[in-house]
């Protein structure tokens, strides 16, 4: 469970987070959606103790981040946006060091390494150097590493950035599997379909302000179910409909060309901020 109260972060003249309040339930997969520079990574950095907020409080499973930082750090696993593995060390060594950092004994460590490498399908690369792995393998290894100490909260900061569609889907399946085992997941992304597919609830963040928190279906259905994209002055303008029949009727009565599609979270974000997530 994550509780965030009136969180503020100011970098020199930039107010990166403005009075952010959040409550992520135990076992929930919570997606934090916003364009680049919205404050997603700053939030994760604060929640994992990497950055100090200017004001506000954070608690992880009841442990206050400020007063019990070591205990709250033990609660969480972090998969940062950039790959931060020791490239010159092997897969096994990277996981061993993480286990040591989290005070795991040798037997427990080795058992967990074996289990997790099977879990992320990397057991055949246990002795490979990290620099010899592909981008997707490195991402999977980072997830395995974050799970080494069995955290109750897992923070995933853009976990599929830079991966091809196939690998992205593999990682999604892995994230779902982790959630099913009871782990609370806090995910930041700017991939709409990622949030739609994975999240129980989604928060929209724009220029440091939290706009709304709701389920993906609630956020989307406020606009309708179907959307027609039409080109006006080199810009795609969507029109929303409650049913496919209504949309088809509109197409039949207008001479312009349209693209028919389902309403997505991008539409919800666009209607609130006037801009796209990507």
């Amino acid at each position: 469970m994550i509780k965030v109260h009136n969180l503020n972060k100011i970098y020199k003249s930039v107010h990166a987070l403005k009075d952010v309040n959040l409550h992520v339930k135990s076992g929930e997969l919570f997606a934090y959606l916003g364009p680049n520079g919205a404050g997603k990574s700053t939030t994760i950095r604060i929640l994992t103790g990497l950055t100090q907020p200017n004001s506000g409080s954070v608690s992880l499973n009841g442990f206050d981040l400020k007063n019990s930082s070591i205990k709250s750090r033990q609660q969480c696993g972090l998969v940062p946006q950039s790959i931060n593995l020791d490239q010159e060390l092997s897969v096994y060594e990277n996981l061993t060091i993480h286990g040591l950092l989290f005070r795991m004994g040798k037997a427990e460590r080795n058992e967990k390494i074996e289990e997790l490498l099977n879990y992320v399908d990397l057991s055949h690369r246990q002795q490979s150097l990290v620099k010899e792995l592909s981008g997707g393998m490195k991402r999977r290894l980072m997830i395995a590493r974050a799970l080494m100490h069995s955290p109750s909260v897992l923070f995933l900061d853009e976990p599929t950035v830079g991966l091809d569609a196939g690998m992205r889907r593999k990682i999604w399946a892995l994230i779902k599997k982790i959630q099913q085992q009871g782990t609370t997941i806090f995910l930041t992304t700017h991939y709409i379909e990622e949030a739609e597919f994975l999240a129980d609830r989604v928060a929209f963040l724009d220029t440091g302000t939290l706009l709304v928190v709701d389920t993906p279906s609630n956020l989307m259905t406020t606009l309708g179910t179907w959307a027609l994209d039409r080109l006006i002055d080199d810009k795609m303008e969507p029109i929303y409909f409650n049913s496919r029949d209504d949309a088809n009727h509109y197409i039949a009565t207008h001479k312009e060309s349209f693209t028919l599609r389902r309403v997505n979270l991008e539409d919800a974000f666009l209607s609130m901020t006037g801009k796209k997530v990507k």
């Binding site: 990497l50 033990q74 790959i83 931060n84 593995l85 950092l101 005070r103």
Partner: peptide, 14 residues
């Protein structure tokens, strides 16, 4: 370069 320092900072290491 490798951002490993973050991994250590996020761990319960004084």
């Amino acid at each position: 370069y490798w951002h490993i320092f973050e991994e250590i900072q996020a761990a319960p290491v004084s």
